[in-house]
Design a protein around this nucleic acid. Structure first.
Lengths: 347, 347
DNA sequence: CACGAGTGACAAAGCGTTTTTGCAACTGCT
DNA sequence: AGCAGTTGCAAAAACGCTTTGTCACTCGTG
C-alpha cells in the first residue's frame, strides 16, 4: 500500500493498463512514441523500479550471472589476489546490479563444474580463459551465454565468434617500450609468465614487433608462475647473464616486485642502473620499494563492459560489436624515472 | 520440461502436493516427521533447487542484501583497499548466495542514502559502524534488518540490542602484547587511528589494562588517518621522543608499514632495535620490507557469520546469540622475531 | 454416540512482472 | 461500401513458489 510503487501504480497514474506500461518501458509491443514517452515519464516521476524477482520469474531468467577466473590448476591463485581482479569484479558487480542482475564472483576452485551445476546461471564472465578450462567447456555445453575478458585461445573459431572484451595489449606494449627507450634504456628484457592466456601471446607479439622495428635483440624470460619468487628468479637469470639488460618489463606487478628484489640483492640501483616497469597497476606496485611504473589496464571499464555485454546477450540483444578493445594507460613512476631520490624505503 | 526440476516434480515423485513439499522443506506447516524426512530425501535425490526468484517473490522479499563500510567522509577509503575487507566481502557473498540471497557490496560514497533508496534491500551488513553514519540512520528508519561487524557505538542501547559480530579485540591485544614482551620488548607503544569505531576503543582498553597489570607506562599515539604517511608520522613522533619505544604495535597494516619506513629513515633496525607488529593480516603486511607480525582477525569467518545472521533475521528467525565474538590469531613474523637475517629487501 | 480438538494434507489465492492473444477502431484501397 | 491490413491497447495466462483457508479424518471425552 504505502510502500513500493509497482507497475499497477504507474498504470493507474498514466490511465493505461499494466500491459502498456510494461511495453512502454521495455520497448516491446506496438505503441505510438507519444504513449511510450508519457508512460516513461510518469514511471520516472513516480520513481518506479520494477521488482527484480517478478521480472526474472516472468522472463524465465534466474537473474544470476557468474564471474570466474579461468586458470590452470597448478597456477591456482585466489580471486582477489590481484588488485586487478578486485576492481574488475567490483565494477562488473555494480553494472550487473544496475540492470537487475546479481553477479557472483566464484572462487576458482578445481571442481568449478560442481559449483556451476548447483547455480542457476543466466550467463557467465570468464576472465582470461585458458585452453582446457573445464568450466568453460561446461558452460558452452549448456549453451550458457559467455563473455570473456581476454580472448579465448582454445577454440580457434571462438576468437572470432565469441564475445569478449580485451585490452589493447599490443599498443600498450609499444607505449611501455617507447617510454623505456625514451628514458634511456637500450637493452630491454621482457618477463612473461608461462601461462596460456591471450594477453601473454599479445605482449610477446607486441614486444617482438617493436624489437624488429628497431633492430633490437629480443630478451624474453619465462617466469615459473605469477608470484614474486618467480619474478625474482627470472630477473636473476637476466642480471647474471652475459649481457644484462638495462630495463626489465614484467607482465605482472608481482613479477616486477620480485625483479626489484633481485636487483637489490645484486646491488643494482633502480632506476639508475636498471629500469623496471610492469603491467597492472596495484597497491603493491605503487608502494613497492621503488614505486613501479605501470601500464594500467583499466579493469574498471573492462568489468563494466563485460557485464553489460553479457546481460545484453542474456536479454537477447545482440551486442553491437562482438568485441571491444579497451585502451591501456602508462603511469610513469620512480622505477623508470631517474628523478630525485625519494625518501621511501619500504613496501 | 527436460530442464530444471521444480517443486512440482518433487511433489509428483513423493506422491504429495506441492504445498506439502514446500512445508516439508521449509519446516513450516504441520507435518509428521516421517513425511518431512521422506520429502526432503526425495528432493535431495532429485537435486531440487528452489527457484530463487519465485521464492523471493512469493515470500515478499527482494533477495538482495547489501554490505557497506560505515565511515566518516574525511577518512574516505575505497572498499577493497584492505585485504581485510576483500576477504570479508568474499565470504559474506558466498554465504549469502548459498542461502538464495545476492549480496551487493556498496562502495562507501558520500550519498549512500541515495544508493540505498534505489535498492530494494532486505537487509544490510554494516562494517565498523561509526557514530553519525547516515546510511545506518536511514536503514534503521526503514526498519531494515541490520547486522554490524564491530559493535555500533552511537546508540548506547544498540550495543546490547543490536545484532553484531565482533572480534575478541581485547584478548587479541593481550596476545600481541604478551608476544612482544616475550621477545624482549619493554617499552611498547600503541598507534591507533583517530577513528570512532568500536575496535579502536577495544584496543585502547586492552592496552591500558595490560599496562596496568604490568605497571608499564602507556604510550599511545593517534594516527591522523589510516594510511602509511599517518603511520610514518606517528612512529616518528614516538622515535624522536624523549624515551623511544622498543616496540610499536600499530592497529592497521598500513600504519605499521609507515612505522617501518620511519624506522628506516632513522636508521633503527627492525626487529633488532625496534619490534613492529600490526593488526589485520594482508598481502602488504606479509611482503613489507620486514614481514610484519600480525594479529589476524579472521575476516572470512566474520563475513560468513554476519551474512548468515542477517539472513536469519530477514527470514524471521531470531539468531540464537545476538552477538558473536570471533577469536583472533597471532601470526609471528620477522618484524618481531629477531631470528636469522632473511634476504628480503623489498615489498 | 455425538462433539470439539487435534492431525495430516491439499486446493487455491496470491507475489509483480512479461508475454501472448485478442479485439476494437482506424486506414486505405478497390 | 466492403475488406484486408494496420494500429493502439487490454485481458489473461503464465512464471515457481509460499501461505492461507479448509476439508477430512482420528481420537479422546462427556
Amino acid at each position: 500500500m504505502s510502500g513500493k510503487i509497482g507497475i499497477k501504480d504507474v498504470a493507474a497514474a498514466a490511465g493505461v493498463s499494466i500491459t502498456t506500461v510494461s511495453h512502454a518501458l521495455n520497448g516491446k509491443g506496438r505503441l505510438p512514441t507519444e504513449t511510450r514517452e508519457r508512460v516513461r515519464e510518469i514511471a520516472d516521476r513516480l520513481g518506479y523500479r520494477p521488482n527484480v524477482n517478478a521480472r526474472n520469474l516472468a522472463g524465465g531468467r534466474t537473474g544470476l550471472v557468474a564471474l570466474t577466473v579461468s586458470q590452470e590448476p597448478e597456477l591456482a591463485f585466489q580471486l582477489g589476489d590481484f588488485d586487478y581482479f578486485a576492481s574488475l569484479i567490483r565494477y562488473a558487480t555494480t553494472a550487473a546490479l544496475a540492470r537487475g542482475f546479481a553477479l557472483a564472483a566464484l572462487p576458482p576452485v578445481a571442481d568449478n563444474e560442481d559449483v556451476f551445476h548447483h547455480l542457476p546461471l543466466d550467463g557467465a564472465i570468464v576472465v582470461d580463459p585458458v585452453p582446457g578450462d573445464r568450466s568453460l567447456d561446461y558452460l558452452r555445453s549448456q549453451r550458457t551465454p559467455i563473455v570473456t575478458t581476454g580472448r579465448p585461445v582454445d577454440v580457434a573459431a571462438e576468437e572470432e565468434e565469441g564475445y569478449w572484451i580485451d585490452n589493447e595489449h599490443i599498443e600498450g606494449m609499444r607505449s611501455v617500450l617507447d617510454h623505456l627507450a625514451e628514458v634511456g634504456a637500450e637493452r630491454i628484457a621482457l618477463v612473461l609468465p608461462s601461462y596460456p592466456a591471450s594477453y601473454v601471446a599479445d605482449m610477446r607479439r607486441g614486444y617482438v614487433e617493436w624489437c624488429a622495428a628497431r633492430a633490437c635483440e629480443e630478451r624474453i624470460v619465462m617466469a615459473r608462475d605469477l608470484t614474486e619468487p618467480a619474478g625474482f628468479e627470472a630477473a636473476r637469470s637476466l642480471l647474471d647473464g652475459p649481457e644484462p639488460p638495462d630495463a626489465i618489463y614484467a607482465s605482472l606487478d608481482r613479477l616486477a616486485i620480485g625483479a626489484l628484489m633481485a636487483a637489490e640483492t645484486r646491488g643494482i640501483e633502480v632506476p639508475g642502473a636498471l629500469r623496471v616497469a610492469c603491467c597492472t597497476d596495484s597497491y603493491a606496485a605503487r608502494h613497492a620499494a621503488t614505486p613501479l611504473t605501470t601500464l594500467a589496464l583499466n579493469p574498471e571499464q573492462i568489468g563494466e563492459e563485460a557485464a553489460n555485454m553479457l546481460i545484453d546477450l542474456v536479454e537477447g540483444v545482440e551486442p553491437r560489436p562482438r568485441h571491444r578493445f579497451i585502451p591501456t594507460k602508462l603511469l610513469p613512476r620512480e622505477s623508470t624515472l631517474g628523478g630525485t631520490a625519494v625518501a621511501t624505503g619500504a613496501a
